[in-house]
Nucleic acid binder design. Structure first.
Lengths: 162, 162
DNA sequence: AAGCTCCAGCTATAGTATAACGTATCATTT
DNA sequence: AAATGATACGTTATACTATAGCTGGAGCTT
């Protein structure tokens, strides 16, 4: 199936993802697992076509739909995030509370925030509850029911601000 | 120069924009003014190519760079917002406190939030201070200096939730 | 086995955005 | 007013991002 072996950390994340999908009765196929591994195996967010190029090394004949379909699945499962400002994809940090809320569209609890440095391009993921609940409150106040959220802050990271 | 006439409300917004640019010594040229008018003259966020089509009606020979350069200027000046999830542009709601902070990259005070309805596609703009300051706090905690932010919440508007 | 559903291969095309270079316009200085 | 420099715009081409639509195949249910 999928002969590749990744670092211990990634293997662990892949195993966790497999358990999550198993519990949900969704299918982390070989292809999806490979794409997830590629997303995890990078510091910075990767674009779909970056991933496609890398996928092609081990998966001859992959085309744009190949990668986009896999990404769509992984997004739905809350295993990865899309950074809209970069049109790029990044692994979801693993937290103790699990990812099961994501599939239920729990925007408040699964809301991630990204800090994007203009200078060096690094992306830091936060998961700040204050922000999440402030958004939830504001939305509720106007009768809006949040399902998913994008919070991205562009600026200068501590290193580059100096 | 620019013979078109818009509704009283839009004319007022255009005049306000002109004053802002004047104060800042930036140039709201005829073309930029026209594009701003097109963005303002629509309920929903418009894509760049929508705007381009409409611009062409009065501005023969307009090409993609024509519209993108104007949009870049208007974004810099804080006169419009980009809704990343829709790759679309929308006018900035006018508030009493003015827009001068935008040019200084004051992400906290100029941070807008968009509520995007999955069902009917309408976009509601909020400007909730709680969210802004929660973001500012969280960023500061990790030594990050925010310059611009994107906050977009997808879900169901009050009408469609029923 | 027939029928169903989901997954993936594959080709084509739609939609979004920028590079690069030349010309014009405007403000300032001389 | 002419020279200079900076900014804006015209124009062509191209890069980058994403989806439509159809086909076959794998696995499950009846």
């Amino acid at each position: 199936m999928d002969g590749s072996v990744y670092s211990a950390e990634i293997e662990q994340q892949l195993a966790a993802a497999a358990r999550i999908c198993d519990r949900r009765d969704t299918r982390l196929t070989s292809l999806r697992r490979q794409v997830l591994a590629l997303v995890l195996d990078t510091e910075r967010p990767a674009t779909a076509y970056d991933l496609l190029d890398r996928l092609r090394a081990h998966h001859k004949g992959a085309a744009p739909p190949t990668i986009y379909r896999a990404l769509d699945f992984l997004l739905e499962q809350g295993l990865i995030h899309k950074v809209e400002r970069l049109s790029a994809y990044i692994g979801c940090v693993q937290h103790g509370h699990g990812h099961d809320r994501a599939a239920q569209g729990d925007a408040v609890h699964h809301a991630a925030q990204f800090l994007i440095c203009r200078q060096c391009g690094t992306v830091l993921e936060l998961e700040d509850g204050e922000i999440g609940s402030a958004i939830g409150d504001a939305a509720r106040r106007v009768g809006f029911r949040p399902l998913a959220s994008t919070i991205e802050i562009e600026g200068l990271c501590s290193r580059c601000a100096a």
